[in-house]
Design a protein around this nucleic acid. Sequence first.
DNA 1: TATCGTTATATCTAAGTAAATATAACGGTT
DNA 2: AACCGTTATATTTACTTAGATATAACGATA
Lengths: 116, 116
Amino acid sequence: MLKVRDAMEIKSRLWIEKEGKPFIGFGRIKLLKEVEKTASISAAAKTLKMSYKKAWNLLNDMDKIAKQPVLVKNVGGKNGGGTEVTEYGKTLIQKFERLNTNCIKFLEEEFHQLDL
Amino acid sequence: MLKVRDAMEIKSRLWIEKEGKPFIGFGRIKLLKEVEKTASISAAAKTLKMSYKKAWNLLNDMDKIAKQPVLVKNVGGKNGGGTEVTEYGKTLIQKFERLNTNCIKFLEEEFHQLDL
DNA sequence: TATCGTTATATCTAAGTAAATATAACGGTT
DNA sequence: AACCGTTATATTTACTTAGATATAACGATA
């Protein structure tokens, strides 16, 4: 017998590492998307209610690990500068989100034919 | 062109919640397996280098959430007592580990046909 | 050359979490 | 009844991590 409403739900988090160090994951992709939208690290940090330092650290670590540049940062100049997400960075967002979506779908299917 | 050795690797963590509260996940299942092996919370905590309190809390929370008892705890008596994992608890271990294995396999396949 | 908002970076403070410590309760065994 | 090793629980301490704060560097623009 199947229950109509089962409060149990499967959750998952996935991320990609390079040599044991985190490269991209849920939080970094969310941040990267916000940078893409605002073209600014500080603005992205603000909307995500995250300190600028933390955002900068996350993005910088990611950029150092990536085989191609993820960000183009401009210091000074018009409006103080800003940060753009490269085409490579945009593909990272797309690929990670697709992977995550597929994983969730897979897990939902597997989980629903389980009785805990 | 495919690289022979790509240091990038996909990682995942999955867990099951009930009404927003964690039910079982990587750490709890690992602990539960150790309790099954040693028939003792304190012994399991010691081998996993975890404080008894933390182990007890994790197991107790899990047990409270489960629809059936996961543990049979004996206080006092021969050897001070001990803790046994119920048949239901054993099925939880099996099902979670199978789910996790399947998920990893799925992600590996998806990930390997990705170029980051 | 003064201004502005950003990136870049260090340092200090706070908070949340884990760990350590202590102690009570328990009930077969001796 | 005393002992033992466990479960059960509270309280205190330590630590790691996150957050706040401060400040320098930058370079187009006016």
